[in-house]
């Protein structure tokens, strides 16, 4: 089996999983800052917020498939929109049929 390619971020977290003194304090600081910020940031209209747990699972899946997580999110969104398009097509058909009946 071919060796799995690792990103620097994967190696960094693997290394830190064995240490007790050395910590990523920069990350902690950022998290603290984020937690202290009480007013939630307003997202632009065309941006959706993905649930943190869901996003972390997607990241694990992306790592398994050796893909970028944004690519996985893009694929999922594409799939969802395709299904929604079918729903819309079906609804339009019904509307048109309904109109003819009238």
């Amino acid at each position: 089996m071919a060796k799995k390619k690792r990103k620097i971020s994967d190696i960094k977290s693997a290394l830190l999983s064995n240490t007790s003194f050395i910590k990523n304090t920069e990350k902690e600081k950022k998290t603290e800052k984020h937690e202290n910020n009480s007013t939630p940031e307003k997202l632009p209209d065309n941006v959706i917020e993905i649930d943190k747990i869901l996003l972390s699972r997607i990241k694990i899946l992306a790592n398994y498939y050796q893909k970028d997580y944004q690519e996985i999110v893009g694929e999922a969104l594409h799939h969802y929109l395709r299904i929604k398009k079918l729903d819309v097509d079906e609804a339009l058909k019904n509307i048109v049929v309904g109109d003819d009946e009238e």
Binding site: K7, I8, I11, L15, K27
Partner: peptide, 17 residues
């Protein structure tokens, strides 16, 4: 190497080090 970069980066990310 990626591994060297990860080690250095972890050291640099610790405020005390």
């Amino acid at each position: 190497t990626k591994f060297s970069k990860a080690v250095i980066s972890n050291i640099m990310a610790d405020e005390r080090l």
